[in-house]
């Protein structure tokens, strides 16, 4: 592990990572996205993310993109958008990776099943809802990763306010949510991404997501068991 062993994550880092990962599932990579990552701030962000072992492979992919000549951005973005449509928007038919928990809840991949209902309830309990512009069901991977970020932020806020009870609940919500709503299907989802992605980008994103979730759950449990 070398120098990475010393890297630890605060809750604000973790929620940021979740939202950052989610952003690649909720929308295609745009020209503006590439421009942001090639800006000094973007590069700085990739630099620090790359220090977390779980994130390295994907930050590597992003770095490669930023090193492309600007005039090739348009075509690269279309390559990625095509890969995104095939994998996540159903164009690939059975050769796709539907980013919905429901799709893995039943043999057939039917959407809007119990996981959608469960997720709606969770959002309701959190007192939040999905932005109007996003027309996805609540069991979309991007939503779920954001929910986890939300739990993390709430733990940090409670902690800052000295509300240890709420912080404790939020901490346990993270463990429960990871186990019940992410790790129950994301490994299958990631397998499909790896199998069917025709760009390396989403393959690496999937690798990174799996590694990150596994690592984060271990860390959460570690924090719990040392109680």
């Amino acid at each position: 592990m070398g120098k990475h062993e010393t890297i630890t994550l605060s809750n604000s880092d973790r929620s940021l990572v979740y939202r950052w990962l989610a952003s690649f599932f909720t929308s295609e990579v745009k020209i503006e996205t590439l421009e942001s990552y090639s800006s000094p701030e973007g590069r700085a962000l990739l630099d620090v993310f790359s220090q977390a072992p779980a994130l390295t492979s994907f930050t590597g992919e992003l770095t490669k993109l930023t090193e492309l000549p600007v005039e090739s951005y348009q075509s690269k973005v279309l390559d990625l958008a095509t890969a995104y449509s095939r994998l996540f928007l159903g164009v690939g038919g059975q050769h796709s990776a539907p980013p919905y928990e429901s799709a893995y809840y039943n043999e057939k991949g039917t959407l809007f099943q119990k996981p959608t209902a469960d997720m709606n309830k969770i959002l309701q309990d959190l007192g939040i809802s999905i932005e109007n512009s996003m027309k996805e069901p609540a069991d979309h991977l991007g939503v779920q990763l954001n929910v986890l970020a939300e739990y993390i932020d709430r733990e940090a806020l409670a902690e800052a306010n000295g509300d240890h009870e709420t912080a404790y609940t939020s901490h346990h919500n993270q463990i429960r949510f990871l186990s019940n709503h992410l790790l129950n299907w994301v490994p299958s989802f990631c397998e499909s991404c790896k199998r069917f992605d025709k760009s390396d980008f989403y393959k690496e994103l999937a690798n990174t997501l799996s590694a990150w979730l596994a690592m984060d759950l271990a860390r959460l449990n570690e924090a719990k068991t040392t109680t």
Partner: peptide
């Protein structure tokens, strides 16, 4: 926070947006 420096960057709002209201 290993992101202490980066967190302050304006880019984060764009690169890791929240999707909730």
């Amino acid at each position: 926070s290993f992101l202490k420096g980066a967190s302050a960057l304006g880019a984060l709002g764009v690169l890791a947006p929240s999707i909730f209201s």
